[in-house]
Design a protein around this nucleic acid. Sequence first.
DNA 1: AAACCACTCATACTTTAGTACCAAATTCGA
DNA 2: TCGAATTTGGTACTAAAGTATGAGTGGTTT
Lengths: 154, 154
Amino acid sequence: MKAIPQFIRHSLLYGGSLALLVMLLKWMQWKFLILDHSTEIYVGMVAVFFTLLGIWMARQLTRQKVETIIVEKEVIVESAQERNEEAIKKLGLSARETEVLELIAKGNSNAEIAAQLFLSLSTVKTHVSNLFVKMDVKSRTQAAEKAKRLKIIS
Amino acid sequence: MKAIPQFIRHSLLYGGSLALLVMLLKWMQWKFLILDHSTEIYVGMVAVFFTLLGIWMARQLTRQKVETIIVEKEVIVESAQERNEEAIKKLGLSARETEVLELIAKGNSNAEIAAQLFLSLSTVKTHVSNLFVKMDVKSRTQAAEKAKRLKIIS
DNA sequence: AAACCACTCATACTTTAGTACCAAATTCGA
DNA sequence: TCGAATTTGGTACTAAAGTATGAGTGGTTT
């Protein structure tokens, strides 16, 4: 669609306008040269015409020249942060320990955790004890509080 | 600073330019009228001059064309919701019980709660037991979880 | 005043949590 | 493939949590 480049179109238009003007000029010479001070009138017309032509050209050339101002609009978003893997790594929690921690934070007892994970109560207790050492807490409630504070649990 | 309105400035400039042009024109009449075809040269100069003037005017007039792009920027905001008094009332928790619940949710043991509230361990145990009945839970960890879920605690 | 409720404290008891120490099987990276 | 870490499980014990019951005090409501 954009076969003809813009500068060529402009050149043609300008050239055409000039040619037309020269013709007009020749005709005016015939018509007004006999009159005194006719040159001023005719130069004034030329001036007006070319001023308009200049304005039109400039508008064509600067039409795309648009200054863009980027305004940042703040949008409030709830902090939907995902599981904090970094905290888990920092504490050195193993996969099983993390599972147990999640169930603790949900309010499960050791027996319930054992049942859900198909483990013996002993195993759960071992995990819980190791968990407390790694998390530097002294009870499951503290562990749950810390887990939620560190966003380890959902 | 912007004492002179733009359209007045433009009018003065344009008027000045016209006056200058007329003077130039008069001088050129003296100089070139004796020569044949001199009119064409001088009209051409006028044309070029006024074309340039038109371009300049158009640029002045269209300089303020500004496009504003609004970019939405996400801002993470912590949900700072206040204490849920409604939930406390619905559960029928007393003032003392709510105090105890908060300390439980922070991971305190019964002994620590007793020390902080200047109560005996027995009293704390009584509060905790009543709390569990009212909240329909079976352990302090469950109570803490429910309290946080119902936004009773901070 | 009687009834009611919140708060306090106690004793006795059961259950669960938590600690310590051990040990075997498995997994996994160096 | 060797060793470290993980996972699993056990016993024995202590500490804490939780339940049940009772009781005294102070304040409010009916």
